[in-house]
Design a protein around this nucleic acid. Structure first.
Lengths: 112, 112
DNA sequence: TGTATAGTTCGACTATAATCGAACTATTGA
DNA sequence: TCAATAGTTCGATTATAGTCGAACTATACA
């Protein structure tokens, strides 16, 4: 039962978080997780190959935005919202609110 | 007296703003502008060549974060904070607050 | 002990972005 | 009109990131 490395909250870096959220696909993943947590990767792929999806989840994990728990054969993802809130108060909520001004459907980038 | 193009507030894109703020040098520029507005580019160069500085200001302008007014031979930069606030309430303030958790001196990246 | 499922890792390729010197433009002020 | 100053533009280089197929790992379940 191998698990993932997750940075501790006091190691979160603002620029890494902003960079992770600056990608339209990753932002859409975060928005979907904010609606329903936890979720496996599969329903969030949006047509991408598994390798691309995996890469984006790694970016989100390294930035401290997402926590991934191995549960059986699926990897359940959730937002580290409480830790993010403690480290950078209001940041995630404000970005999600800003993102919500555009419908999610209009934002999910197609795989190339 | 040539002036710059600035996108209207309703054309601001969240991902472009996050991307612009995700760069440590650009974030440091925004922090300095938040402390003192307006300012020319020169005192914000932090050792970079003029061409690099100019590039970063262009990214900030295109994202809608900075407004540049040509005044004589200097180009005065200010934050478009009211417009940003109207478009994405709380976003800039929250990011600035998060950034303030690290001293500005510790964040200004050296030119390579 | 297969076999299917979920997701990772690897390696190659491509695209985007940062960096910088050098030449250029616009304005001021002597 | 000439020199100085502030910043842009250009073009080349390098670095970083995204994309994707193929092979791989780990677990579940028949």
């Amino acid at each position: 039962m191998k698990q993932y490395e997750h940075p501790p909250a006091d190691a979160f870096e603002l620029t890494a978080i902003l960079h992770a959220l600056a990608d339209p696909y990753r932002l859409s993943v975060v928005r979907r997780l904010a609606q329903a947590q936890p979720q496996p990767c599969a329903p969030l792929q949006a047509g991408r190959p598994k390798s691309s999806t995996s890469h984006h989840f790694m970016v989100l994990r390294k930035a401290g935005i997402v926590r991934t728990e191995v549960v059986g054969t699926t990897h359940m993802n959730s937002l580290r919202d409480a830790e993010l809130e403690a480290r950078f108060p209001g940041l995630l909520a404000t970005v999600l609110k800003a993102a919500a001004m555009t419908p999610l459907e209009a934002c999910v980038p197609a795989a190339s």
